[in-house]
Simulated scan of single mutants.
Amino acid sequence: MRLPPAAFAALALAACGSADGPASAQPGTDISEGKPFAVTPVADLDSPWAMTFLPDGRALVTEKDGRMLLVIIAKGSNSVTATMPLAGIPKIDSAGQGALMDVVLAPDFATSKLVYFSGSVAGEGGKGVVLWRGRFAEDAKSGPRLEDVTELFRARPFVEGDGHYSGRIAFSPDGKYLFFTNGERQKFDPAQDPKATLGKVLRLTLDGKPALGNPLAAKGFAPEVWSYGHRNLLGLAFDSAGNLWEQEMGPKGGDEVNLILPNRNYGYPAVSNGSHYDGRDIPDHKPGDGYEAPKVWWNPVISPGGLMIYSGAMFPEWRGDAFIGGLSSQALIRVDLNGTEARKGDQWLMGARIRDVEQGPDGAIWLLEDGGRGSGGRLLRLTRAK
C-alpha cells in the first residue's frame, strides 16, 4: 500500500513501536521447505534493485524505473505497514539494464542524515552511471524526501548502450572513503583503458573526488581508479577485518568473487574463466599471467546480483560469510570467507531471480526478487527455521 503524505505520520510512529500483524499471504509452493531458514514474503514491489535499513528499522528500497521507497516495517513482525515514494530523486534512464541502483547510508547518517545512491542517466556521448548524495527528511505534510541532492561523480566516458552500469557503493570501515563500481558497459576494452573509469573499482572521498594516494594515478590512470580489468560489478562489501570483496558477472561462464586489492588488474577482457557469447574462447586465468585471479568462480553462471557479508546473531554459524543473490540461477548463494581466502558454500534455489541481499537489524536476511523474467519482485525475510 502506497500512502499519501497525510497518512504517513501515524504509520511511521506505529512502525517504530510494537505494532504487529500477519505476514502477507502468497500463493504457490513453500520455498522454505528443505532449507535452514524460513522464508516469509513481506511486500510486493515493482522491480526492486537495492535496499538499506534506517536506524529505526524502516528501509529504503530502490526500484528500476527510478523510484526510491520508504518501506515501513511493523516492528516485531513480518508485515510491511506501507511504502511511500521519496521525492527529490533525479530522472533515471531505465532502458535495458538501466535503473535507480544502489542506496547506502552515510557512515554518520545518525547525525548527517545523508544518503548515497546511484543510477543510470542519459547525457552527452550516450549513457552512464552517476553517484548522488542527498539528505533524508520527512514530515507529515510533505512525506519522505531527499533534499539538497548533489551529483558527486559520473562515469567516464558516457557511451551508447544499456548494459553493465554496475553502480555499487561501499564505505571503508574508517568511514573516510567511498568505493564505487563502474561496469565496462559491454564495450570490453574500457576495462583496460587507463583513462576510462569503466570496468573499474574506484576509491573516492565522501564528496566524490579522487582519493589521495590512489596508486594507479601515478601510472597515468584516471585518478579515481583503485583496481581495473572488471566486467559488470554488482556487489561490493567490506568484511569485519577490512578486506574488500566484490562479485561480478562473467561473460558466458566465469562469474567471480574477487578480493579487491589496490593497483591490481583483474584481467577482463584479456582473461576470464568464461567465453564470449558467440563461442570464441577467452584465455582462462593462470598462475603467473600477471592478472589477479578470482577467489571463487562459477561455470555455469549464477548471474550474481547483490553482495552482503553477514555479521548478525540470528545465524551465528554464518557470521563472516558472504551472501550473493542469483539472477539466472534463481538462488541465494553462500560463500565461506576465511581471511583473504574464499570457497563455495551453499546454493539454495529460491524460485525467482534474486537481485539483492541485505542484513536486517535483528540479523534476519532480506532478499529482493528482481521482478523480471517471471520473478515477482517481492521483498522476502529469512529467519531461522524452527
Rank of each mutant, 00 (worst) to 15 (best):
G254S: 08
G377D: 11
D20C: 13
T81V: 14
R384T: 08
T81W: 01
I354E: 11
F315Q: 12
Y177N: 11
V129T: 14
Q359P: 11
D20T: 15
L216Q: 11
P36S: 05
G125I: 12
A9N: 11
L349W: 00
G306I: 03
V301L: 02
P194M: 09
M68Q: 11
A237N: 07
K209F: 04
D239Y: 00
F188G: 00
M68P: 08
A322I: 08
L100R: 00
L146I: 06
L178R: 04
H230Y: 07
L379V: 01
E248N: 02
L380T: 03
F171L: 10
D93A: 14
L100F: 01
N338W: 00
S94V: 02
R381D: 01
E341F: 01
T52W: 03
P107W: 06
E246S: 15
G290K: 15
N265A: 04
G326L: 05
S118H: 10
F238V: 04
G376P: 01
G351A: 04
G143H: 08
E147W: 09
N338K: 12
P36T: 05
L204Q: 08
V225A: 07
G374S: 13
K195A: 14
P36Y: 07
D370Q: 14
F238K: 10
Q97F: 05
K113I: 00
V104F: 13
P251I: 10
G119R: 09
L60P: 01
L236G: 09
N243T: 09
V225N: 03
V103I: 10
E256G: 07
G235Y: 05
P55H: 11
L234W: 04
D65W: 00
L244M: 10
A170I: 14
S112V: 10
A25K: 15
D102R: 02
V296S: 01
G183D: 04
A110P: 03
G360L: 04
V335Y: 02
A222H: 15
F323M: 03
T29D: 13
S94F: 15
G57C: 02
W226K: 07
K195S: 13
K141E: 10
V80H: 06
A23F: 06
P283H: 13
M51C: 05
A43F: 15
G372S: 15
Y291T: 07
N258C: 13
I89A: 03
K64Y: 07
H285V: 11
W226C: 09
K35R: 15
T205K: 01
Q359W: 10
L349N: 00
Q247M: 12
G254Y: 06
P157A: 02
K64T: 03
G213P: 12
P269I: 05
L261M: 13
K295Q: 13
S227H: 07
G279H: 15
K187F: 02
I354W: 11
A222Q: 13
S79N: 12
P190H: 06
W298N: 07
G126F: 14
G128I: 03
G21C: 09
E292Y: 00
L69K: 05
I169D: 09
D193M: 02
L202H: 12
F180L: 14
L204N: 06
V115C: 10
A364K: 08
G98W: 09
S120K: 06
T52S: 08
